[in-house]
Design a protein around this nucleic acid. Structure first.
Lengths: 143, 143
DNA sequence: GCTTGACCTCAAGTCGACTTGAATTTGCAT
DNA sequence: ATGCAAATTCAAGTCGACTTGAGGTCAAGC
């Protein structure tokens, strides 16, 4: 059940073959060997890729994710770091929630121009102070 | 109360002077004139910058934001677009919420390795399917 | 046996939003 | 009047995560 070629891994993981090569080059995944020139992957690579995807979604950079894989191939994530990232995520969520409410109001607001709407101005003022989040991934999956 | 020099605008808006020149070049803001070589800004530019900041926080690109300013200098945001963006934000928030819970669990989980924790594996599986959000700003304000 | 399409490598390009550097000019305080 | 910190322009660089292109290799189906 192992022995996947790059195209299959790509398809199953929802990334391109080029991305897989890129990840391998960065040390994030490994191929189990070669068939001629071509890489052969074990199916454990899929779990690894899921892990990478999850990490990205949580706002970790590829480098950070790379550091989470212990030499043995197992996972070695600092639990404190996880909690910290969860808190960070939580703050982001709160801000985005406020923003969403603001947008929603502005969309429904009867004022002729948004600038004349008191609520919109309040949001503006709030936005003026502090801004947002940390890098969040864009996940612009090709087409 | 008008008549701000670039440094003051920069300081008050929390961006660098270079960023202001960049925004002007992109047509996002305008200086009201020059004192010699130097730009002079009206204080309305601060509101404009707040608007830009808000837009960025909501996930709009600078180009998109640029298109929201009507020729007259007033605001011209499609309310449908706003609602759409609010919905998008809402979906993002939900995903991030699930992710946050997942991270939190993983941080507290007693399993020796995250990979052995059933909950973590469930999150992994969820992450495997669909991924995240649209471009969210990074807001890496200077240092 | 031959074609062909998937795969390979390596280098360079892309995208967005700025930042940085070099060379020059100048408004303002002393 | 003079000095200099701060402003100006324009070009190029940066960062992260890939993508794209050129040129070459090769396993498998006909």
């Amino acid at each position: 059940m192992s022995d996947l070629d790059i195209a299959e891994v790509a398809q199953r993981a929802g990334v391109t073959a080029a991305t897989l090569r890129f990840y391998e080059e960065k040390g994030l995944i490994r191929s189990i060997g070669r068939r001629g020139l071509r890489r052969v992957f074990g199916n454990d690579v899929l779990e690894r890729l899921a892990l990478i995807s999850l990490g990205r979604a949580a706002g970790f950079s590829l480098d950070e994710i790379g550091r989470m894989f212990a030499p043995g191939g197992t996972l070695d994530i600092d639990r404190g770091l996880l909690a910290e990232r969860a808190d960070e995520l939580d703050r982001t969520i709160r801000r985005l929630g406020a923003l969403r409410d603001g947008l929603r109001h502005a969309a429904a607001c009867p004022a002729p121009s948004h600038l004349e709407c008191p609520t919109f101005r309040r949001i503006l003022r709030a936005a003026e102070s502090k801004s947002l989040a940390r890098r969040l991934p864009s996940t612009r999956r090709s087409l």
